[in-house]
Amino acid sequence: MKLQLLAAIALATPLFFANSVQAGNNKDLQQLLNTRECINCNLSGVNLSGAHLIGADLRGANLQGANLTNANLEGADLTGANLKGANLTSAFVTNVNLKRANLNGANLTRATINDSNVYQASMNDLTITDAEIFNTGIGIGGDSAEIPDWK
C-alpha cells in the first residue's frame, strides 16, 4: 500500500511543478518540462523553483534571472548557458556541466555543488554564502587557479 502511494506521489509531482512554473516563453518552458531538453531556449526570468531537472540538456539556454531555488540539476548540461543573476539558492548542482556558462551575479547561497565543470565559465560577483562546494573550481580570490576541463 505504501509503495502504491509513493508511486502515485512520484507521478503527480511533475504535474505540480508544471502548473507552478511561469515564464515569458511558454513554448520553450513546455519543451523543457516535457522532454528535459531545451537547447538555446529562452527561459529568462522563469520560475523553476523546486524543479527536478535531472539530466536536462540546457546547452546555450538563456536562464538569466531565472529562479532555480531548490532545483535539482544533477547531471544537467548547461554548457554555454546564461545564468547571469539566476537564483540557485539551495540548488543541487552535482555533476553539472557549466563549461563556458555565464554565472555572473548568480546566487548560490546554501547550494550543493559537487564534481561540476566550470571550465571557462564567467563567475564574477557570485554569492556562495554557506554553499557546499567539492571538486569544483569555484573559490574565493585569485586568478592563478587552474580550472580543469572534463575530458
Rank of each mutant, 00 (worst) to 15 (best):
T94W: 00
A71S: 15
L3I: 11
L68P: 01
Q22H: 07
S122P: 01
I113T: 04
G75Q: 08
D125E: 13
V93Q: 01
I147V: 15
N117P: 12
D28V: 11
N19K: 11
L58N: 03
V93W: 00
N40Y: 00
L63T: 12
G50T: 07
G24Y: 02
A91P: 08
V46R: 00
A7P: 07
Q64A: 15
L63W: 08
D28S: 15
N62Y: 02
T129P: 03
G105W: 03
A91V: 05
A121E: 04
S20I: 10
V46M: 04
Q4S: 13
L32K: 04
A91N: 07
L3C: 11
L83T: 05
A91C: 09
I140H: 08
G65A: 07
A145K: 13
V21H: 02
L32P: 02
S122R: 14
I128A: 13
G142Y: 01
D57Q: 15
T13P: 05
P14G: 08
K151E: 13
F16K: 02
T109L: 10
G105F: 02
L78V: 09
D130H: 13
H52C: 07
L58C: 09
D115G: 04
Q30W: 06
G139W: 00
N87A: 10
N62R: 14
A111P: 05
T129M: 08
A10M: 09
A8R: 12
L11H: 09
L6V: 11
E132T: 15
Y119S: 10
L43M: 12
N25K: 06
K151R: 10
T127K: 11
G65R: 06
L88W: 07
Q64K: 15
S144Q: 10
L33G: 02
N19P: 01
I54D: 09
S122L: 13
N40F: 05
N97E: 07
F92M: 06
A12P: 05
C38V: 05
R36N: 15
K84Y: 02
V118S: 02
C38E: 00
L3W: 00
V46K: 01
G85T: 07
G65D: 05
N107F: 03
G141S: 12
V93E: 03
D115L: 13
D143I: 12
V21W: 00
G105V: 06
I9R: 11
A86N: 07
L126G: 10
R100W: 00
I39A: 10
E37A: 13
N114P: 00
T79L: 09
D115Q: 12
N62S: 14
H52M: 11
N104H: 05
E132I: 14
A71L: 01
L29S: 07
D130P: 02
G60E: 02
N117I: 04
K27F: 12
G139I: 00
D115V: 04
C38I: 03
L58G: 02
W150G: 09
T13A: 15
N95A: 06
A91F: 03
D28A: 15
C41L: 08
N87Q: 12
R100N: 09
D77G: 03
K27G: 01
N114G: 01
N62V: 07
F16H: 06
G85D: 04
V96S: 03
T109D: 08
V21P: 03
L103D: 03
N82G: 08
N97S: 11
N124H: 11
A101C: 05
A131L: 06
